[in-house]
Design a protein around this nucleic acid. Structure first.
Lengths: 392, 392
DNA sequence: CCTCATCATGTTAGCGTTAACATTTCTGGA
DNA sequence: TCCAGAAATGTTAACGCTAACATGATGAGG
């Protein structure tokens, strides 16, 4: 008499790979196996018996892709074992894992992130929102983030807010649908709706580029101090009529401007008409235009603090066109240290910001938070560096 | 005697909102409703009866976020109605939709993309792989893609391959886990593994930036022709000893170089030693270094075709340092038309590439493909434009 | 030889949503 | 008043994966 279920003498006895199904197990168990593998690649002789003949609905379209069950059927084990072999290799025997890896490769199995995310409540995704992709600062930061998170199994989802809080809110809303395990944001100035979203989502979040003392996790440097320090440097060099050009007017720009103002006020040299703030995006062309404007309303400037290197380059090129000697007649300083700024004639004085380090540190802090731990240093100041070159 | 199930006289009679449950329906049905809403926000008087007391497992962690069922319970309708109100608003009464929208807002409901993707076999995500984010070309392309796809409900997942086919393969493999509905790639030179992945994934794919006639969908322009045309232009201007500087050496760079060579060969003016191809990444500093190298091995050059504007700017700055008059002693041409290139002294001759248009057209072609239709024009040539300026 | 712990693997159910089909309600005309 | 068809809403069962628990095999110690 064939043994009744449970009846396995060894795990291999009823494995599909061996196809010894009919000999050792009851029809009931055979049906179960067939059902489990109903979409499997390796064909099994009896067609899957309809378990409940009552309903006769058309099956769903499905992804028509190789699934865990397909791999399982191919190897002759259960789906969970495949899952374990891929996610927690230590739990599976070496030889079996080897066979599984082969099958995965052979069948071209690609895990379905949606299913994994749904089942495990972890998406292994991190959302990063930056205000611009045309700014080398953020591109380098993104690279650092990816370099840090990818080896730890996290996928980086990049969003470009275009410096618009409204866009940031929309992006955040959309990306929250991915159930990210963590969020990296630029600055602190999310709009109210976005802040509410963040609060109710309750997902570990680290802010980049700026610092504050509200208790939020952040990695950056003091924008105010950097603006102050650069202006101070110009004052120390003897410049007395220092202009200020800014575009875009994002919060960081504004804080640097405050640093500029504070330094000049302190020296009793602040003059409002030497300052131009243009809400339009920053660009080289914008720098050229703003120089024209500034020289019109404050022709006596002996130095200009440009809020970023793009503007500064535009100013420098415009000076060449106007035969204004740099730095003899007019000194120029920028901000951010673009690669190019070292190569102009004269080379551009600027502020080097630790953008790669910020990305890496923010990502690491986020990893700590996502692991449920507290970062040693919830507010991390990575400082900045003045690069004094030929243009001042 | 209370009526038996099915027993509703009107939809409102047993709705949770009305809480008239006990009066009109059988206990069995009541239990079902309770079960359906077991995780709901609005508390229901009797605690959810355990349906099968046999097992007593701990419930899963869950996302602890507001779900469709929560919204459904709050409004007093079934989950599918909420789903419909959000995805196919036309199928739901105006007044009900209004109430649902309010509830969604009030509860801060954010749909779970993983669940949606799993249930519908559509992820509403599109993967875009570009070789670099520090290149304005691709950033503009990405912006166009996002601008085109977002309003149509698709989320763009950006991957930066860093010009490395191996990285491209890895990224592709990872992003395929998201089950994207479409894929946008840069160029055609995926490695074998990536090509296999793409083939077996069987997802609509459009290639950008280049053209070919293998039948693959693509939007771009002829890299060869653009290199040829720019060289031809220099020849027409009377330059006879035209050098060529390239870095990065990605496939597009190489094709432009072939165009350069063809034009010079045609004119009987090609000299191998006037060409330098540097595999390292392209940058302004690299341009300066390469000029030095070129002038060493071919000091008689009267013009230089730089494979992109970064190199060209580096060359131009180096010429300034060396007091080489541009264009009198040495003409300089770039490629890609960076914003900055119009503002240098002299302004840089370059090739304007329709990068935004390419992104938009590729995204539109992908939309067509994702809708299951055939694009009118599977290979789309958007051309390029010579911008002849002061530097030549 | 039995017990118990450990390890390898299996079973079950459910994550949140939507496709497919079912049911109820509404509408308008005979 | 009744009925057919349309419109609105509901029920059920996946989607592919993994957490939680279950089971069988193995081996060490008594």
């Amino acid at each position: 008499m064939p043994p009744q279920w449970p009846c396995r003498t060894s795990a291999a006895s009823w494995r599909l790979a061996g196809c010894k199904v009919s000999a050792n197990i009851t029809p009931c168990k055979a049906d179960l196996i067939v059902q489990r593998n109903k979409r499997c690649l390796s064909t099994i002789t009896p067609p899957p018996a309809r378990m409940s003949a009552m309903t006769d609905r058309k099956p769903r379209a499905g992804q028509s892709r190789v699934t865990l069950n397909d791999v399982a059927a191919h190897v002759g084990v259960s789906a969970i074992t495949i899952s374990r072999a891929l996610n927690k290799p230590a739990l599976v025997t070496d030889s079996l894992r080897q066979r599984i890896d082969d099958a995965v490769r052979q069948l071209g199995y690609v895990p379905n992130r949606a299913a994994r995310s749904l089942a495990s409540a972890r998406s292994h995704s991190v959302v990063v929102l930056v205000p611009s992709l045309s700014n080398a600062v953020f591109v380098d930061t993104l690279a650092a983030i990816h370099d840090t998170l990818y080896p730890r199994g996290y996928q980086t989802l990049i969003g470009d807010t275009r410096y618009a809080p409204q866009d940031e809110e929309t992006l955040l809303r959309t990306y929250l649908e991915y159930n990210p395990d963590g969020i990296l944001l630029t600055g602190f100035d999310q709009n109210d709706a976005a802040s509410t979203l963040l609060r109710s989502a309750n997902i570990p979040t680290v802010h980049m580029m700026e610092l504050d003392d509200s208790g939020r996790y952040c990695v950056g440097f003091s924008q105010f101090d950097s603006g102050y320090a650069l202006t101070r440097q110009l004052l120390d060099k003897g410049y007395r009529r220092i202009g200020f050009l800014a575009a875009q007017l994002d919060p960081r720009t504004i804080k640097r401007g405050e640093g500029y103002r504070a330094a000049l006020r302190e020296a009793g040299l602040y003059q409002a008409h030497r300052e131009i703030a243009e809400p339009q995006p920053s660009s080289v062309g914008q720098g050229a235009r703003l120089l024209d404007e500034l020289l019109r309303q404050a022709p006596d400037c002996d130095a200009i603090f440009c809020n970023n290197d793009d503007l500064a380059l535009g100013v420098m090129f415009e000076c060449q066109r106007r035969h204004i000697a740099v730095p003899q007649q007019l000194a120029i300083a920028g901000f951010n240290n673009l690669e190019m700024s070292a190569w102009t004639n004269p080379a551009l004085t600027t502020v080097a910001t630790p953008r790669y380090a910020i990305g890496a540190a923010a990502a690491n802090m986020l990893l700590t938070l996502m692991a449920g731990e507290q970062p040693a240093q919830p507010q991390q100041d990575l400082g900045f560096k003045l690069l004094v070159r030929g243009s001042t």
